[in-house]
Simulated assay, not measured.
Amino acid sequence: MLDELKKIGLSENEARVYLALLELGSETAQEIAKKAAVKRATTYVQLEALMKKGLVTSFEKGKKSYFRAEDPEHLIKIAEREKKMARERESALEEILPGLGKLYISSGERPRVRFFEGVEGLRTMQDEFLKTKEKEALGFSSADDILRIFPSHPAEYSPRRVRRGIHSKLIYTSSRGKILKKQDDELLREARYIPADKFPFTCDVAVYGNRVAISALRKNPIGVIIESEEIADSLKTIFNLAWEATEKYN
């Protein structure tokens, strides 16, 4: 019966206390707590709630307070009250729903964010990038970390990007210096080096179309793709600013 009482609006502890009182007839809070297997302090709270609902009454006997369960017929009134409140909530929701919908639409674009874990997760991000219809991608990268995680990256990933006709503008760090420049033309790439000791960078960031893909390459590899025109445009602006600043290192 506990579950049935909960369905009509009683909390679990209220239901326990009420059932205990039905069996006991009338008793002190201490005895009710024992019967209901509820802490004594909690029992007082539940008894007060049940009295407000008309399911319990109290009376004094000597110097002690006793509590008595009211006729279970009162539960019908509670069920009817719950139904009435549900109808009122539904009616109120129907009234405000059109306005809420307008607010939702007027608030503009909502970024879609997806997370990827592990090396295989980063491969999935790369595969998704290579399916893009965009013909230019802007990026920041740590060449050392990319080659550590994906040793075959130059032989596999770059040729696939070239076959897709995706041009890359890349700002990168490397402990070996300007290692990418000599292959720029054949790989549809403009790469600019920045010194890792001055600009430590351990992530890979790609911006293409309305998407920003960020991969953390140290410790446990993890990545995120954010789909948002506003965020992508802002990152493109930051990239262009950084691109101009790399001139003195190249």
Rank of each mutant, 00 (worst) to 15 (best):
L2K: 13
E4M: 07
L5I: 05
G9W: 10
Y18H: 07
Y18W: 11
L19K: 02
A20D: 00
G25C: 08
E27H: 10
T28W: 03
A29R: 07
Q30I: 09
E31L: 14
E31P: 05
A36D: 04
A37T: 09
T43N: 02
Y44A: 10
L55E: 04
S58H: 07
S58P: 02
F59N: 06
E60L: 13
K63I: 07
K64C: 00
S65C: 09
A69R: 01
E70D: 10
D71I: 05
P72G: 06
P72R: 10
L75W: 01
L75N: 01
K77I: 09
E80L: 15
E82C: 07
E82H: 10
R89N: 08
E90N: 01
E90Q: 05
A92H: 02
A92R: 01
E95K: 15
I96V: 14
Y104P: 06
Y104F: 15
S107D: 12
S107H: 13
P111Q: 15
P111R: 13
V113D: 12
F115G: 03
F116L: 02
E117Q: 07
E117F: 08
G118H: 02
G118E: 03
E120Y: 01
E120N: 13
R123T: 04
Q126V: 05
Q126W: 06
D127W: 00
L130Q: 04
K131V: 05
T132Q: 05
K135Q: 03
E136T: 08
F140R: 10
I146T: 04
L147T: 04
I149G: 06
P151G: 02
P154D: 01
S158Q: 12
R160N: 00
R160F: 00
R161N: 12
G165S: 06
I166H: 01
H167W: 09
K169N: 09
I171W: 01
S175G: 12
L180T: 00
D184F: 03
E186Y: 03
L187M: 14
R189F: 02
R189L: 09
E190R: 12
P195Y: 11
D197G: 14
F199R: 14
F201Q: 09
T202D: 15
V205C: 10
R211G: 02
A213W: 04
I214M: 11
R218V: 08
N220L: 13
N220P: 04
P221S: 10
I222C: 11
I225M: 12
I226Y: 04
E229D: 13
I231T: 09
K236Q: 11
I238R: 15
E244L: 15
E244V: 12
N250Q: 13
